[in-house]
Amino acid sequence: MARAILEIVLSLVILIGLAPLAEGLLRKLKAIIHSRQGPPIIQPYLDIAKLLVKEDLAPTESWMWRVAPALCLGATIVVAMLTPIGGPPAFAFGGDIIVFIYFASLAAVAIILGAFASGNPYAYVGGSREMMMMLSVEPVMTIALAVAAIKAQTLTFDGLMASPVTSTPSISMVVAGVAFLLALQAQLGKLPFDIAEADQEIMEGPFIERSGPGFALFRWAMHARLMIFSAVLVSVFVPLPNLGIPVLNMVLTLAVMGVVLALVGVVDVVNPRLRIDQSMAYYARVVVFVSVLALALAIVGH
């Protein structure tokens, strides 16, 4: 029991606690490519701290408006507990991959409901875009994870982490990993797919009416996505050697996650934003070619 709690706390510290730091590092990377100094690495923490004391403006009395940020971060925390970092997730006894996917969608649902509650037309546009992004990205992610699941004959993360599928390279897993990587960019809300938030077009879309602590929670949840999805990518699709000691596995995973996030960051910096119809067409192609290919390979046993 104590061990389980310890594991949960550890994974939360890494995936949630360090998430703003990851964002800070990405901003620094962005600044380097922009030829500028850039903010301090801990700036996301400072932003969140600042937002906590800012006035909380509410354009509506709706109860949904108040609940949405906490629900979003809450669901993200549960997702973090279900996320493998080099080893089985801490909360593996509570849910499997499908539960993971659904709790991740629940966080997005909280964002969208919170947006719709504000009544702002831009929030509606943003919420609608957020949903459409989910619709185009989630299938890719699901297919990629299904490939792993079919190969490992289990839909639980601990079964998956224990199976040789995640530690030995295979063609289908590589293809699935590429698909997941392509989905990652949008899943993390990075350019060219930060369409839902698009500050120049619809002024942060779902968050347009947000200020203060509610916004802080949403921001943190968005930062946490960085860690969670890259952790899944690295743990499941990158065949890392098992070092025997869970902590070492975790550190190795974190290091590779850093590389993945840096890649995501570079793509983010050298691209303009796509339109929603363009990105949907893009992911439709990814689904049809890459994911289905991986699925086919997995089923024939490669």
Binding site: K30, H34, L191, A198, Q200, V270, N271, P272, R273
Partner: peptide, 13 residues
């Protein structure tokens, strides 16, 4: 124009 498209690198450079 780069900034409007979210392409801040163009803006900075």
């Amino acid at each position: 124009a780069g900034h409007i498209l979210g392409f801040d690198t163009v803006l900075m450079q």
